Simulated assay, not measured.
Amino acid sequence: MGQRRSPLDVAELELLAARGWQGSETQPLGRWLLRAGGGGFTSRAHSALAVGDPGIPLAEAVDVVADWYAERGLRPCVQLPGRQARAADTAFAAAGWERDEDTLVLTVELDDEEPGPRATVAVTADPDEEWLTAARQHGDPLPAGAAAVLGNADRTAFASVRDVDGTVVAVARGVLTDDWLGITAVTVAERARRGGLATSLTRGLQSWAVDGGARWCYLQVVGGNTAARALYRRLGFIEHHRYHYRRAPVG
């Protein structure tokens, strides 16, 4: 793996990542992107992506975002990536929207000589029931609408590892968008942790993606997840930028 910087800027990478993880409904607001669908599964599929100019004054854009999500029965949420979103962040903060912790977007350049996974990794185009059962969102089972979001992309891969008894104990999702692999939904069962399975999942998806023409890889890690950050640093990933969400106050 190399340490070369990504050829995409913050807005370009976020818009590419949005194509690989999307709900069932999108609507532009200038250069911003309003996203919903999938039964409330993940903030990325249910937030306004604030990149570039919304085409209207920021205070008005805050109101438009709030109304759009309220009309759909969703708590209004906005994703604010990198330094380019500072002015928008200030506008949402002034309206009382609550800030989440930082999420780091990490990237790495791929090559044809990536070491293979240590564990046996099965890769399929669609998630089966075992994959969906093993996956977790913030430690909880996936909601009913998760499968619609997970499969809503052109070229997906669902990686899994089984234990000696044949039970799926680790899963991850890959999506190939242009020449970029996005890795998401990495889950390792508690009893199988610290055995290198997250590394094997990453290697397995990278091998799949390189065969499909990928040259770069990105993923997102919550800032407080020090173990995952250390893992991906060992695998050659470097920080591209950070983002955070703001959510409209309740009530």
Rank of each mutant, 00 (worst) to 15 (best):
Q3W: 08
Q3C: 00
S6I: 08
P7E: 13
D9H: 15
L13V: 13
L15F: 04
A17E: 14
A17W: 10
R19Q: 09
R19S: 09
G23K: 09
E25Y: 07
T26S: 15
Q27C: 14
L29M: 00
G30K: 07
G30L: 00
R31W: 06
L33S: 06
A36V: 11
G38W: 04
G38Y: 01
T42K: 00
A45E: 08
A45M: 07
S47T: 04
S47H: 03
S47R: 02
S47A: 15
A50V: 04
G55N: 05
G55P: 01
I56A: 07
P57N: 08
L58T: 01
L58K: 04
A59R: 13
E60D: 14
V62W: 00
D67R: 07
D67G: 00
W68L: 12
R72P: 13
R72D: 12
R75Y: 03
R75H: 04
C77M: 12
P81G: 03
P81L: 04
A85Q: 02
F92T: 01
F92C: 05
A94Q: 12
A95W: 07
A95V: 08
R99K: 10
D102H: 12
D102Y: 08
L104A: 14
T107E: 03
E109W: 12
D111S: 06
R118T: 13
T124F: 01
D126C: 03
D128Y: 06
E130Q: 10
L132P: 00
A135K: 06
R136W: 02
Q137P: 00
H138N: 15
G139M: 08
P141F: 10
L142E: 06
P143N: 01
P143L: 10
A146T: 05
G151H: 00
G151T: 15
S160G: 10
R162A: 12
L176D: 05
T177P: 01
D178Q: 11
D179F: 06
L181D: 08
V186E: 04
T187N: 12
E190C: 06
R193T: 09
R193P: 08
G196S: 12
S200C: 12
L201T: 10
T202F: 13
L205F: 04
Q206H: 11
S207E: 14
V210F: 03
V210S: 01
G212V: 11
L219N: 09
Q220S: 10
V221E: 07
F237L: 10
Y245Q: 01
R247L: 02
R247S: 05
P249V: 04
G251D: 15
G251M: 04
